[in-house]
């Protein structure tokens, strides 16, 4: 059944943010500390984490054909990921539209801040997805790593089916563009294989 989650992000994983910014193996960004903490202060109150998920039966057929319960898809990489899974949880998660507004604002005013906010937004939604994953694990037991459209050979076009299967727009306000991108942009949909009952 459809389950809705609301959450909060109290603190950002700065290491993850740095990784998105292209820093390799450093603990803090030299000369950027002020800007980073300024951006974090703006970003945290703008986050409005929400998620929706549901379970679906899974049938793995020949030649990487998968019946995901809400759609049929041909994908080798997803087949590998879902090996040994008995059913799936499909989820959509977002940290809301106000992050995009912040990024939009600073893309006009300060490219450096826009870049940092962009990275922090990405880190925030990943952190929120980890929490959603944890909630799913707590409920359904052992799960596979989450898998999203666009990973490997899983087509982006599957987004359309995901959106209608979970009524994503109705439940958490996320929409799809013509090119099947999610708006608000700091949003994730993913398939999580469940291995035991």
């Amino acid at each position: 059944m459809i389950t809705l989650l609301n959450g909060s992000v109290e603190r950002l994983d700065i290491r993850e943010t740095l990784r998105y910014l292209g820093y390799a193996g450093v603990r803090s960004a030299e000369g950027m500390d002020d800007v980073m903490s300024e951006c974090e202060k703006m970003l945290l109150p703008a986050l409005a984490p929400r998620a929706v998920y549901d379970t679906f039966p899974l049938k793995c057929g020949e030649n990487d054909e998968l019946d995901l319960g809400f759609a049929k898809v041909h994908s080798h990489s997803l087949s590998v990921n879902l090996k040994d899974s008995t059913r799936i949880v499909l989820f959509a998660a977002t940290v809301g539209a106000e992050v995009d507004r912040l990024i939009l604002k600073y893309s006009k005013l300060s490219p450096a801040r826009a870049l940092v906010l962009q990275a922090m937004g990405a880190a925030a939604v990943e952190q929120w997805c980890d929490e959603v994953n944890a909630a799913i694990r707590a409920k359904y037991g052992v799960t596979r790593p989450r898998f999203s459209c666009g990973y490997g050979d899983l087509p982006l076009a599957l987004q359309r089916d995901i959106f209608s299967a979970l009524s994503v727009t109705k439940h958490i306000g996320v929409t799809l563009t013509e090119g099947d991108l999610m708006m608000p942009s700091k949003s994730v949909t993913a398939i999580v294989g469940i291995q035991s009952r």
Partner: peptide
């Protein structure tokens, strides 16, 4: 030096 610093200089 990394991209954020490059942008700070640009600004």
């Amino acid at each position: 030096l990394y991209l954020p610093q490059l942008l700070m200089s640009a600004e």
